[in-house]
Design a protein around this nucleic acid. Structure first.
Lengths: 232, 232
DNA sequence: TGCGCGGATATTGGATCCAATCTAACGATC
DNA sequence: GATCGTTAGATTGGATCCAATATCCGCGCA
């Protein structure tokens, strides 16, 4: 398994401070911060999650940590081993392909429902996000912008469960995408695909837009699989 | 919203007794039993989930209950209201359509991957499940058999995440399917579709099988939507 | 020297206890 | 008579405490 990317990962303390005031209950806060930390690579795959340790870092007791871990387990972001503790869920080429398959199934569906209802404001926002991405060097913020771009196009689907699943797997894919920004030329090609996708959406061409999404996800998946499977 | 079906719902005590010895930690046990109770209609939509009460029923303290509730929240089976408690997630025509859309996207994908690898034993098992369904009067067991039939056909897809999602939404659909067994003639038509699906799979006709799945899910969804939207 | 058993230690799982907050009922005031 | 404020009760959220289990190291024995 290749080593994690060269991003300027903020440490756990930074992630904590950023999330602290936004939540009512400690459990929500811990859950959100840990999810961000895992998806952002701050807590790498396989890292053991000692309850006492996390509780101290978050400034809470072990209980909110335990509840948060349970939620993350249900989202497949951490794995529990009874009486042995939890670890950050592993990543693998197979899992990446799994997520890619799910995205390929769900995202065209969401786009099909959403596209006819998208407004000029939505398109403008999407274009703005693409422009930001062109200038963004940090992989962490990049993943966030990428996610928001895609979600903007799907947002009008009016299917809360579907959108939650799509967002969840976009976020899961981000874990893998982080590896990819080091890959030569990936970012610019990905951006080309984004612009093509947006153009097709603006033209109201549902079939072309869906094809673009499928190709975009498939290509990213193939390149990533090749990268993860390469001999180190 | 129509009243729940006329099934011989076992009470909570029965569900508890059935699950008690199968798990190593209390949290796992409570989570499984509560999921079964919610999906099976024992705990109806909107029912308040008092922690103390559930803890007493399960013979444990409040803590495993809380952890289980958090997991079920992440699976969208219960809703948390901070400092006010949790309730069983609501059901609605919109939510049913949401689940139907997800199934329509995921199940053909799973079938496409799985079908080429299905063995004669898999087909035999699927046929056996269909035969059992023909003779099963209880909606609860019926839902379980239905789920196992579908999952048998998808099982060789070799995509754990995808299969988990499919199973989760099959189970979620069961919550709605329960209403449907009262609808005149639904069960026999559904079984016809199941047999047609199995035949297409046995013939190795991927496209026909996928079309069958989509139609099957779509038809069930439409009928159910009509049922839920009807004036009481 | 290698293998297996046993106890010490660390860590999780579960129970109990305390604090914070929401709900509802009662009463006072306009 | 209605509305607002206050207060008591109930229930959740969080912290601490205890028990159960797994890991690891050392010792004994083959």
């Amino acid at each position: 398994m290749p080593q994690t990317s060269n991003s300027p990962s903020p440490d756990l303390t930074t992630v904590i401070a950023r999330n602290r005031p936004r939540f009512r209950t400690a459990t929500e806060f811990v859950e959100a911060a840990m999810r961000e930390a895992i998806l952002g690579g701050v807590l790498p795959a396989g890292a053991p999650l000692r309850q006492e340790e996390l509780a101290a870092a978050f400034g809470v007791s072990r209980m909110p940590v335990r509840e948060a871990l349970r939620q993350l387990e249900a989202r497949a972001l951490v794995e529990f081993h009874p009486h042995r503790g939890a670890v950050v869920a592993a990543i693998s080429a197979a899992d990446s392909a799994d997520i890619g398959t799910i995205r390929t199934a769900l995202e065209p569906t969401a786009l099909r429902l959403s596209l006819p209802r998208l407004t000029p404001e939505d398109f403008a926002l999407a274009a703005e996000l693409l422009a930001e991405m062109d200038a963004e060097p940090d992989p962490g913020r990049m993943g966030e912008l990428n996610r928001r771009f895609h979600m903007t196009l799907y947002a009008r689907a009016g299917r809360p469960r579907l959108l939650a699943l799509v967002e969840q797997h976009l976020a899961a894919a981000d874990r893998y995408l982080r590896f990819q920004f080091v890959a030569l030329g990936y970012q610019s090609r990905s951006q080309d695909e984004h612009y093509a996708l947006l153009a097709a959406c603006r033209a109201g061409d549902v079939e072309a837009a869906c094809a673009n999404v499928v190709d975009h996800v498939t290509l990213a998946g193939e390149q990533l699989t090749a990268f993860l499977d390469r001999p180190d």
